[in-house]
C-alpha cells in the first residue's frame, strides 16, 4: 500500500494491483452451456507447467498457456471472443469494485485473537489467562450449540472486500489503483469485479 493525493489535496490510502493482462479462454452461451459466462486466464507460464488437457482447452481459444482460470457470469457475451485480451482499461476511475482474495493465514488461533474475547487476569493467583471459559450450560441441553466461538484456523480463507473505489488506472502497465486495503499478502491472486449490488 501507499498513498497518493486527490484534487483537494487529501492523502488517499491506495493499493496498487497488477490487473492483467488477462486473456479470454472460453465464452459460455445459453445455447451451448445453459448460461452466459466468460472464462478468463491470467499469469503466463511455460507449456511444460500445464497438462495436455489444459493445453488443449487453451489451444481451442487460441490462448497462451496461463496458470489461473476463472469464470465470471455476464449478462451479455457479445463483447467477448476467445483469445481476446482483458486489461485494466475495463475499469474506470470512480467505479466501485469487489476484490476477492485469500486472507493472511494466522494458523490455529485462540479466542482472544480469533473472536476478540477478553482474557482473564494475569496475576493475583489467577491461572485463567487465555482460556475460553464456559462454552455453555450443563446436562440440559447436554451439547454445545452450533456456531459456538472457539479456537481454530484463522485467516487463509477466501475473503471479499466490497465496494472499493478505483482511484486511478495505468493502462500502459495494467495497474489498478484502488482505495483502501485488500485481502491477503503482497503477491496474492485476486479477483476484481464490478460491485455486485444486491436488491
Amino acid at each position: 500500500m501507499t498513498q497518493i493525493f486527490d484534487e483537494e489535496g487529501n492523502a488517499v490510502p491506495v493499493t496498487v494491483i497488477q490487473a492483467g493482462p488477462c486473456i479470454v479462454t472460453q465464452v459460455k452461451t445459453a445455447k451451448t452451456d445453459g448460461y452466459t459466462a466468460v472464462q478468463i486466464g491470467y499469469d503466463n507460464v511455460s507449456e511444460k507447467a500445464l497438462t495436455k488437457p489444459e493445453l488443449g482447452h487453451l489451444a481451442k481459444a487460441g490462448a497462451t498457456p496461463v496458470r489461473h482460470l476463472k469464470e465470471y457470469r455476464v449478462a451479455q457475451t457479445e463483447e467477448f471472443e476467445p483469445g481476446q485480451n482483458v486489461t485494466a482499461e475495463r475499469f474506470e476511475p470512480g467505479q466501485l469494485v469487489d476484490v476477492t482474495g485469500t486472507s493472511i493465514g494466522k494458523g490455529f488461533s485462540g479466542n482472544q485473537k480469533r473472536h476478540n474475547f477478553r482474557r482473564g487476569p494475569m496475576s493475583h493467583g489467577s491461572k485463567n489467562h487465555r482460556l475460553p471459559g464456559s462454552i455453555g450450560p450443563g446436562t440440559t441441553p447436554g451439547r454445545v450449540y452450533p456456531g459456538k466461538k472457539m479456537a481454530g484456523q484463522l485467516g487463509n480463507k477466501q475473503v471479499t472486500t466490497r465496494k472499493l473505489q478505483v482511484v486511478k488506472i495505468d493502462a500502459e502497465n495494467n495497474l489498478l489503483v484502488i482505495k483502501g486495503a485488500i485481502p491477503g499478502k503482497p503477491g496474492g491472486l485476486l479477483s476484481i469485479a464490478p460491485t455486485n449490488v444486491v436488491g
Partner: peptide
C-alpha cells in the same frame, strides 16, 4: 514490472 517498481512509478507523479 515488479511491485516495488509499480508503486514507485505511481508515487513519482506526486513526489
Amino acid at each position: 514490472m515488479n511491485a516495488e517498481q509499480a508503486i514507485r512509478s505511481l508515487e513519482a507523479d506526486y513526489i
